[in-house]
């Protein structure tokens, strides 16, 4: 018996979510008295094993193959499924990232395994794991048990702490047959420039209908620069065509849990709160004193955001030095 973690990398760099999943895998392995095995797949990624060791991996299996240069469901599913069939673990963990969301259910179906997606908490007690997964976009928390021999879960980014810890870290190569993929990557379009990915960001600055105009996002961008933050949006601003949907935070957008969420000109519809209600600290700037967002904000400023934000940006730059 063991716990297996799929360590996600992109272009040869370990993703932050991978460090979080390995750390949580180690914690659960210790609780269950078992070993943590990490599968690292990609092209030119063998060097990442050292980094994975520092988060407590007992064994690291590396599949380093040109065919795995770009992520494809079929190639990666073949590798992960083959590894799981060899190891027969009790628990398999992935990040609830774009790749994890795509890969975990495909592999789960191949192994006839139960899957709990987007977990915010996993416990081990009385010889069994239980998984907490927010449903209805966080309006409720459901606790799941998995009945199949192999249990698969994906972990919500930014919720589990990455913790450096000792592991044996034995590295070995894993040989897998990699099938031809029926999908071909033609182009990768990177958006958002240097900003952190919305679901991974420590700080998010979001704008809503209260900005009044699409150009209003310029000041949100400036605020985000001062905080090193990602930029999000309410559904109203997306529906108005001011922002692309991939920046939408809420029930029909991204669910985020940063350390700091700054909501500017966002009324706080139940739909939006569902997507950011688990943020550690919420700041709201809104000129409507009745805005619902003030009911959940740790700190609120009642005022015109076009007056408040420039002042705030200046002050923050003094403090953060950005």
């Amino acid at each position: 018996m063991s716990i297996v973690v799929f360590a996600e990398q992109r272009e040869g760099a370990l993703r932050k979510i991978a460090t979080e999943v390995v750390s949580e895998g180690k914690r659960l392995a210790a609780a269950a008295g078992t070993t943590l095995k990490v599968l690292l797949a990609g092209s030119g990624v063998a060097g990442l094993a050292d980094e994975i060791k520092t988060f407590g991996a007992d064994e690291i299996a590396v599949v380093d193959n040109d065919a795995l240069k770009d992520y494809s469901t079929e190639t990666y599913a073949a590798v992960l499924a083959a590894y799981l069939q060899q190891e027969n673990p009790e628990l398999v963990l992935l990040g609830h990232s774009a790749i994890g969301k795509d890969l975990a259910p495909r592999v789960a179906a191949r192994l006839d395994a139960g899957l709990v997606p987007d977990c915010v908490k996993i416990d081990y007690a009385d010889g069994d794991f239980s998984f907490v997964h927010p449903v209805y976009a966080g309006k409720a928390l459901a606790t799941y048990k998995v009945k199949s021999a192999v249990k698969i879960a994906t972990l919500r980014p930014n919720v589990f702490a990455a913790a450096e810890q000792a592991g044996a870290g034995a590295v070995s190569d894993f040989a897998a047959d990699i099938p031809a993929s029926r999908t071909t990557l033609k182009e990768m379009v990177v958006s958002g420039g240097d900003r952190p990915e919305l679901t991974e960001a420590d700080v998010i600055c979001s704008g809503g209908r209260g900005l009044g105009k699409p150009e209003g996002f310029e000041i949100i961008e400036q605020l985000a620069d001062a905080l090193g933050a990602a930029v999000g949006s309410s559904r109203a601003a997306v529906d108005a065509g001011w922002r692309e949907h991939q920046y939408q935070v809420g029930q029909t957008g991204k669910v985020v849990s940063p350390n700091l969420y700054v909501a500017c000109g966002i009324s706080g519809a139940i739909q939006h709160l569902a997507g950011m209600g688990s943020s550690k600290c919420i700041v709201a700037v809104n000129k409507d004193p009745e805005a619902n967002i003030f009911n959940v904000a740790d700190f609120g400023i009642e005022g015109d955001l076009y007056k408040v934000l420039p002042e705030l940006i200046t002050k923050l730059k003094e403090v953060t030095g950005n």
């Binding site: 790749i99 033609k186 182009e187």
Partner: peptide
């Protein structure tokens, strides 16, 4: 995908 989009055949 995270951080952008992919064009796939």
């Amino acid at each position: 995908v995270d951080g952008g989009s992919e064009i796939l055949d």
